[in-house]
């Protein structure tokens, strides 16, 4: 197709209009080159610009320290006041068990296996949930078929699937991944659907009268327009994935950080309970930071 753009056709005679057409473009701002500021002045300016985040960081550090201190005091004095701190490990005991654990290949294996289960379960949920959401949002019939089933299954917590999952899948590993998948699948699907329902119809029209066909509209309009909601779904889904994973590991696992935590209780290794909990917290935080980072990469237009 020799569709050299009509615009190029007009280019020659359009050029002279440039001067007439242009609205005065912003004049480049002429800043007089200032004398290099002193270190003190620079530091002061940097401080003023970052004041808010510095403040937040400082308060955050103080608050965490206070939390550790309270924890330390409660366990050192074995406080019993409705709640019993008699057997709760102190921060120092947990730290000691942490330094031991990081040299223990078994502990690292627990963590690695949990991460792998999250990776497979969550990735699968993300792919299936987003695709299905996009298709359901665009094709009414698919929506009408899938939606009732989804609505019935959605309120069932992933943990309630444990017995069924064990029956369904030949190996324990598969059933745990399946439960992780289920936990994150519905939030991702629902948010993708929500995003699709909010796509501005004017943008679809704009694409149509620029020559976009169904597939391009899907790829160039519906998908990017839904991305912010898709990422909301992914963030929530990641949280639920960890909840489901830990529960599944505690019930039916042989490995994994959830299993580690539960095993520590059975073996009366109290410090390891707290260690397991903290590890779960850190892993959960890390994975949600990953998602947020991915969101910023994929949606540069939403960067501040």
């Amino acid at each position: 197709m020799s569709s050299s753009p009509a615009i190029l056709r007009h280019q020659d005679d359009a050029m002279p209009a440039a001067a007439a057409v242009t609205e005065p473009t912003p004049v480049p701002v002429m800043t007089p080159t200032p004398a290099p500021p002193s270190f003190g002045a620079l530091a002061g300016r940097w401080y003023r610009l970052n004041q808010d985040s510095l403040r937040a960081t400082a308060i955050g550090v103080i608050s965490l320290a206070a939390f550790l201190l309270v924890w330390h005091l409660l366990t050192t004095y074995r406080v019993v006041f409705f709640v019993r701190f008699t057997n709760v490990p102190s921060p120092l005991a947990v730290y000691a068990s942490f330094t031991k654990a990081i040299h223990d290949p078994k502990f690292l294996l627990h963590i690695l296996l949990s991460c792998r289960r999250i990776f497979f379960g969550f990735s699968l949920a993300a792919i299936v949930g987003v695709l299905l959401g996009l298709i359901m949002g665009r094709f009414k019939l698919v929506h009408e078929i899938v939606f009732p089933v989804a609505e019935v299954l959605r309120p069932i917590p992933a943990i309630a699937w444990v017995p069924m999952a064990i029956m369904l899948w030949p190996t324990n590993e598969q059933s745990i991944v399946f439960i992780t998948f289920l936990g994150s699948f519905f939030p991702i699907l629902v948010n993708t659907l929500h995003g699709m329902s909010l796509v501005d119809p004017v943008l679809v029209r704009a694409a149509q009268c620029l020559g976009a066909r169904e597939r391009s509209i899907f790829r160039e309009v519906y998908f990017p327009a839904s991305l912010p909601h898709i990422f909301t779904g992914l963030t929530i889904g990641m949280g639920v994935a960890w909840v489901s994973l830990i529960a599944a590991e505690m019930i039916s696992g042989q490995y994994g950080i959830g299993y580690f935590t539960w095993e520590a209780y059975s073996l009366v290794q109290y410090a390891d309970i707290a260690l397991g909990m903290i590890a779960i917290g850190v892993l959960g935080l890390g994975s949600s930071l990953l998602i947020r980072g991915a969101g910023q990469l994929v949606m540069p237009w939403r960067a501040k």
Partner: peptide, 14 residues
């Protein structure tokens, strides 16, 4: 038939 809409209709992601 090119169209310019009353609401700004640029693609925010482009």
């Amino acid at each position: 038939r090119g169209m310019v809409f009353q609401q700004y209709s640029l693609f925010p992601w482009k």
